[in-house]
Amino acid sequence: MQDLRIYTRLEVLLELRESGRHIHWSPSYRPAGILSGNHASKLRGSGLNFEELRQYQFGDNIRQIDPRTSARLKKPYVRVYSEETDRPVHLVIDQRLPMFFGSVEKTKSVIAAELAALLAWVALDSGDRVGGVVVGVNGIQPISPQRSANNVITLLEAIISANNQLSLVTDAEPSGSLFAQVKPFLSSLTNQSVVILITDIEGLGETDISELEMLQHKSNFVLFVVQDPLEANLSLAHGLSISEGKEQINIQVNNDNQQKYDALYQDKLQQLTLAMSGSSLPLGLLNTHDPVVNQLMMLLQGHE
């Protein structure tokens, strides 16, 4: 039996659908209409659905006058449209080796998997098409967006497959930032798309934020970053045991190593913080110890 703190399973991700029914997206947090579904949207690139023909009224847009109908009835008639708010939602889920770490309750990779599942169910139940890209140690697996529970399950199965392949014993080479791997995919999306990236502090570089902002002029992005307390304070590791489910080692931290690691991590964190401070990208920070449902609800209410 797998340890659910280290690896996830399909039944866990399926159960999150019920929790997602209680989540409401707050306009104070989401970018203009994120995951808009069947309700009003301000997302760029919105489409229009034809509803009816009716006689022209003062204030109507004259560009919507239907010339054929108006000529036939000898009165001006306009074509009435409603805004089309259906959006393809693309979840980009980081399941690479840096995510395979957790010092408190769960690994970052498990938190990312649960967050992705929760967001996928919320999007589907809002009427949106859901798909995405799972990035793992063996490459990228894309799932085309569809308005279907079966398609969400296909996405979840891809997440689980990548998640369960994570191991401390691996020959996988470092693959650079998450953004570098998925940039060709992101660049191909239309202005109808909503993109949700789920990664950790290693998944994005300072230049990546700038490029994401450029892409945001075409698509709609939101970023979630999963953090572990031990990453920000290595002194917490002293005397702890680390395990990947089968074997474990005890950690002894000396001051020199701690200072070197803390300096590297804080420098990385500062770079990301500075990049995000001037960025229009919505950002949510999650930890590895609180339930994902509670964290997402707090974020969407506008709390840190």
Rank of each mutant, 00 (worst) to 15 (best):
T170C: 06
L281D: 12
L197D: 13
S148K: 01
I198A: 01
T288M: 03
D171F: 05
H238N: 14
T170Q: 10
S193M: 04
L274S: 15
L264G: 09
S161G: 12
Q165K: 09
G203F: 00
V169D: 15
I160N: 07
Q266C: 04
I160C: 06
Q259G: 04
S235I: 11
T154V: 08
K183W: 02
D290F: 00
I242G: 10
Q146G: 06
L272K: 07
G245S: 08
L223V: 14
N257G: 09
L155R: 01
G203M: 08
L281T: 12
S193G: 01
G239S: 09
I251C: 06
V226I: 06
Q259H: 02
L281H: 08
H217P: 05
P229W: 00
D200W: 03
Q146T: 13
K218A: 03
S193R: 03
I201T: 14
I242R: 07
V253L: 09
A158M: 08
Q227E: 14
V195N: 04
A180K: 02
V225G: 01
V152I: 08
L223E: 13
I251H: 00
D290Q: 11
F185K: 13
V253K: 04
I249A: 14
F221E: 14
I198Q: 07
Y265G: 10
V225I: 12
L234Q: 12
F221M: 08
I196R: 03
K246P: 06
I160Y: 02
V253D: 12
G205C: 03
P184M: 07
N254R: 06
E231Q: 05
G176L: 02
L285V: 13
L234W: 02
L240P: 02
K260M: 10
L155N: 09
I153E: 12
S193P: 05
Q146P: 00
F221Y: 01
Q258L: 07
S210Y: 03
D256L: 14
T170G: 05
A237M: 05
I198K: 03
L204G: 12
A263Y: 04
D208H: 04
S235D: 13
F224V: 11
E211R: 04
Q252R: 10
S243A: 09
M276C: 08
I201C: 06
P174T: 11
T199A: 05
I242Y: 05
G284S: 06
K218H: 05
Q216Y: 05
V152A: 05
Q258D: 10
S167T: 15
L212S: 11
A237W: 02
M276T: 14
P229Q: 09
S243G: 09
L223I: 13
N257I: 11
D262A: 06
D256F: 07
Q227P: 02
L189T: 11
R147E: 14
D208Q: 07
L274D: 15
T199R: 00
N257A: 10
I198C: 05
Y265E: 13
Q259L: 08
L274V: 14
N150T: 15
E213W: 00
D267M: 07
P174S: 09
A263N: 10
Q258I: 10
Q165H: 08
L166M: 11
T190E: 12
E247R: 13
S235T: 14
A237K: 01
M214C: 11
S161D: 15
Q227L: 09
G239D: 12
D171H: 07
Q248P: 03
D267C: 00
V194Y: 00
L186N: 08
I242M: 10
Q270H: 07
T288L: 06
K246D: 15
S235V: 09
